[in-house]
């Protein structure tokens, strides 16, 4: 089972900090305006920060993926543990992509698309750019091999 790049934690923890900061800022301004003790929004933001950071770290710890004989298998989730098996025959197409934030920490992700309705796109974040494109190529080849003549 492969883990994600540890650097993804920077991204996820950073995201948690920023959203806690926004909530805190807005709450602070609102409290000033409404004449409510400012300790309240600060406490809420602090709690959000702790929960968010913890969630991000656990999320990284629980993320696993591997390519099995005939499927792509993923394990993830903190509160709800999710395990997904994407049969290689069902792969419609594969993307590797880098968002602006991902580029900032030098990461990329690979997205696998199926014709399904719920698990229609499966994203593997936290890969190095090389790994992401290698994974894309490999999944593409395996999908062609698996010969999904009628992928629907």
């Amino acid at each position: 089972m492969n883990a994600l790049q540890p650097r993804i934690r920077i991204l996820w923890v950073g995201r948690a900090i920023i959203s806690a900061g926004i909530v805190g800022g807005v709450g602070y301004a609102a409290a000033m305006y409404a004449d409510v003790p400012v300790e309240w929004p600060i406490a809420i933001a602090g709690l959000l920060l702790v929960v968010g950071v913890l969630h991000a770290l656990l999320r990284y710890r629980n993320w696993r993926y591997e390519i099995r004989e005939d499927s792509l298998y993923l394990e993830r989730g903190v509160l709800t543990e999710v395990r997904t098996a994407v049969p290689l025959v069902r792969i419609q197409h594969v993307d590797s992509r880098r968002s602006a934030l991902e580029r900032l920490v030098g990461l990329a992700s690979t997205v696998v698309y199926t014709a399904g309705s719920r698990g229609a796109d499966v994203r593997i974040p936290g890969l190095t750019p090389d790994d992401a494109s290698a994974l894309r190529e490999r999944l593409k080849r395996l999908a062609i091999e698996a010969d999904g003549e009628d992928a629907v």
């Binding site: 989730g77 509160l79 709800t80 543990e81 994407v86 049969p87 069902r90 199926t114 719920r118």
Partner: peptide, 13 residues
């Protein structure tokens, strides 16, 4: 079948 997903929420666990 397209994908097989198993989930366990915190309550299910």
């Amino acid at each position: 079948i397209q994908t097989v997903i198993d989930t366990r929420t915190i309550f299910q666990r």
